[in-house]
Design a protein around this nucleic acid. Structure first.
Lengths: 201, 201, 201, 201
DNA sequence: CATGAATGAGAATTCATTCAT
DNA sequence: GATGAATGAATTCTCATTCAT
């Protein structure tokens, strides 16, 4: 009986290919990462990659999707018991900055490939970004409703600023190879940002 | 008499190739932009590109270099008559956000290629970024010395936040195709950021 | 399971490509022999050549190496039962002159490519030549020790003369397309040469 | 008034291009020697080369032709006052081996390009070689007629042997960069060869 | 005569994808 | 399912030759 896509996805090889792809692409860049290299690192034959994925693009797409899913899952889980707008924003910042620690290869890949030339990636990764922005905007709006945050700043601008600021710090660390303390860095960024948007005394 | 490199650079075709490259790469991405396509768009033969540039890489490198040069030139010129730290930061933000208006293709290219897989680009574009960050850090430090800005925030973190925030707003506009008012957007971002780092009452 | 290089080398296609390359290069010369033409003659796709060889250079290098290996193997085998210096030199001359009969294309290639412009070929083929010269010198020296050959001639000069003389006869035949009797030609050359170096009565 | 080809040939630039071509080709090999490089070394524009020569091939062809002409002229001049077959052969050997001293670049070019892949060169250079061989054969035949040389060896074989032996010594010196004494080397080769063909006591 | 910018026809090589085993 | 040899389209870059100035 034919396995469904769902079942394929749980196969061990599927995951191995995904992990190998992220590693190789982080090291060499998408266009310089032959499928043969990914297959080799995954310990499978070149053709096997095509049993689990439609194309090379599909491998990368899937890897990024999975990463974002985990990211949003982690946030959602925490929000259940983390109610305050400030605390929620601080938590997002922390998880965002920790992504580097969780899976360095993926962080590199995000910083180097996500915004890049492969238009297909840029376009689909934009979806994920939109979700991030919306998530933050909602928190910001709630903070404004509750009188915690200034009402004279656009929630959209704030959300983009927050994402951009953290993303840049992450990016800078990725490129320079510098290791940083996610907690303290998150604290500093959010200190500035929250101070900037806190409803005046 | 053979033209010097300097003279070649002022040739009309040189500029046409550069412009065509930026356009094509902005549309299709660096790795999906064959030299033949760039040449066609510039209205020259494939081989002609190699009369003006050492390689495909060199075309992109040069285009980005020129853009940054103009950017820094504009800032430097303005700083002569623009002394206050707040005003200077606001000016940088404005010029940064206006880059989209000046040359949309170049803005797209910056957002898609600068951080990307071609390690060579990532590496050399990092130089330019470092210069931006340092420029902002110096202004921030001066603001701190003058008692205008909080002394308990790292000038480096502030600089990265500012670049990241603006870059992200720009990026978002570039991807969605949205047009925005640079002046007002700059004002909003800097309102939040400057408010965040202003020395407390 | 991936084939080792050893295994690849025994593959039928490997040999077909090698043979096709020798043929095409003998006909058109190395630099005028596109890989595409070699592939076509071998009945494989262009890319297939690169599954078996690192580069176009590598194909030629390998073909010449194989030929010399066979040549030296044949000599070494015969020397086991062929002791006299005169007989040994005569045998080398014979095998050298017969190379044309064994594989005409390879003989042509040797005459046209071995000394040629591709510096890489000149350099590596020099190794093979050096081996030839040393082989002859040793025989000559032994003949001198045994009092068969004149002691007042340099073994090196004799060796180069012998190689040069035979190589030129071969070359001449190759270019004119003339067929000759290897045995009788070898006899004539060696008659002159051995007579010239025989220890006087 | 249009200049004849003859007149063109006497122009100073004509000679400069010829010399530059020999130098560059000796250094880099025919196929790796762009016309632009030859033109640069000759101090003329690329296009100028085509005012004096039909094609790149034509430059090389002409350079080799001129060299052989000089070679045969020198031999012919000397033969007027040099009558004996032994002395004549010894003179040819000497001039042949001295070619390296006279114009090293040309000697290199001869050894690397003359027999090579460019079929056109192989074919036309063969003409020159044929002339060399015939010249020697005539001398040998006269020596046989005069009873100086053995009658039981083919004049053709002797001629090829002589050319081949000397050519190989030259070639070896060219490749290794070794400098040798033309006079003494010529003496050694001809000692062996003449001894080998001298009519027995 | 001389120039050298422009051309465009190749040439070597890579690699995503397929398919017979 | 799994394999990996084979394919051939696509790409970058070179350089002989031309021709407008």
């Amino acid at each position: 009986m034919k396995k469904t896509e769902e079942e394929l996805a749980t196969c061990e090889k599927y995951q191995r290919i995904l992990d190998a792809a992220v590693e190789v692409i982080a090291e060499r860049g998408y266009f310089k990462s032959p499928v043969s290299e990914i297959a080799k690192r995954a310990g499978v034959a070149d053709g096997t990659v095509y049993l689990y994925f439609k194309s090379k693009d599909d491998v990368l797409r899937t890897a990024i999707d999975r990463t974002f899913e985990k990211f949003y899952k982690q946030i959602a889980d925490a929000f259940v018991t983390l109610a305050g707008p400030r605390e929620q924003l601080e938590y997002i910042a922390l998880v965002h900055l920790e992504s580097c620690t969780v899976n360095r290869s993926m962080a590199v890949l995000m910083q180097t490939e996500m915004r890049q030339s492969a238009k297909f990636i840029a376009e689909f990764s934009h979806h994920h970004l939109v979700k991030y922005i919306q998530m933050v905007r909602e928190v910001v709006r709630r903070g404004q409703d509750e009188g915690i945050f200034r009402r004279d700043v656009s929630d959209g601008v704030v959300a983009h600023c927050m994402f951009g600021a953290i993303d840049e710090l992450l990016s800078s660390a990725v490129f320079t190879g510098r290791v940083y303390d996610a907690k303290s860095t998150a604290a500093q960024v959010m200190d500035v940002l929250l101070n900037g948007i806190t409803a005046g005394a």
